[in-house]
C-alpha cells in the first residue's frame, strides 16, 4: 500500500486515490491537422519508464482534487507531489515523503519544488506529437 501525500489533506492510504495516467500530455493545438498516426500517438501512446515517472492522481474519497506526482516505478518511492498545471520539478532535489501511517494533517514538506526540470525533460520530449502545445 502506498502512502500518498495529498497536497490538500496530507498523507493518506492509496485506496483513497485513483490513478490518472501519465502527466504532462498536452492536448494537440489543432487536432484536425494531425495525421491519424499523430492522433493515435496522442491518444494511446504513453511512456512506460523504468524509474521516475510523472503521473496524475485524484484524491477521490478525500478532497476530490487532481494533482501530479513523481514516482519511481522501480522502488515506488514518491519523489514529489505538485499542482496540476505546474511544470515537472527536478527529481534530483527530492523531498522526503513522510513515513508512518495516514495522517489527518496536510503536509507541505512533501510538496516538491515547482522548479522547471532541466535534467529529466528528455523523457517527456518524445511524447508530444507535432503541433502539440505544452
Amino acid at each position: 500500500m502506498l502512502l500518498i501525500p495529498c497536497p490538500n489533506c496530507g498523507p493518506r492510504d492509496e485506496t483513497e486515490f485513483h490513478y490518472g495516467g501519465q502527466a504532462h500530455v498536452p492536448y494537440p493545438e489543432n487536432p484536425n491537422e494531425l495525421t491519424d498516426t499523430e492522433w493515435s500517438r496522442y491518444l494511446f501512446y504513453r511512456e512506460n519508464p523504468k524509474g521516475i515517472f510523472a503521473e496524475r492522481w485524484v484524491h477521490s474519497t478525500g478532497c476530490r482534487q487532481w494533482f501530479n506526482m513523481l514516482r519511481d516505478t522501480v522502488s515506488y518511492d514518491i519523489k514529489a507531489v505538485y499542482k496540476m498545471g505546474t511544470p515537472r520539478p527536478d527529481s534530483s532535489s527530492r523531498a522526503t515523503p513522510e513515513t508512518g501511517t495516514a495522517s489527518t494533517g496536510p503536509d507541505s514538506t512533501t510538496t516538491g519544488s515547482a522548479a522547471p526540470s532541466t535534467s529529466t525533460t528528455s523523457i517527456l520530449s518524445t511524447t508530444a506529437p507535432e503541433g502539440a502545445t505544452k
Binding site: C9, R12, D13, E16, G62, A102, S103, T104
Partner: peptide, 21 residues
C-alpha cells in the same frame, strides 16, 4: 487508516476518508 489518536485527531475536526473500505 487515519491516525485517530487524540493527540492528532482533535475533537471538532472532520475528515472525508474511508471507513470499512
Amino acid at each position: 487508516s487515519l491516525d485517530l489518536h487524540p493527540r492528532v485527531f482533535k475533537a471538532g475536526t472532520a475528515f472525508s476518508t474511508e471507513i470499512a473500505n
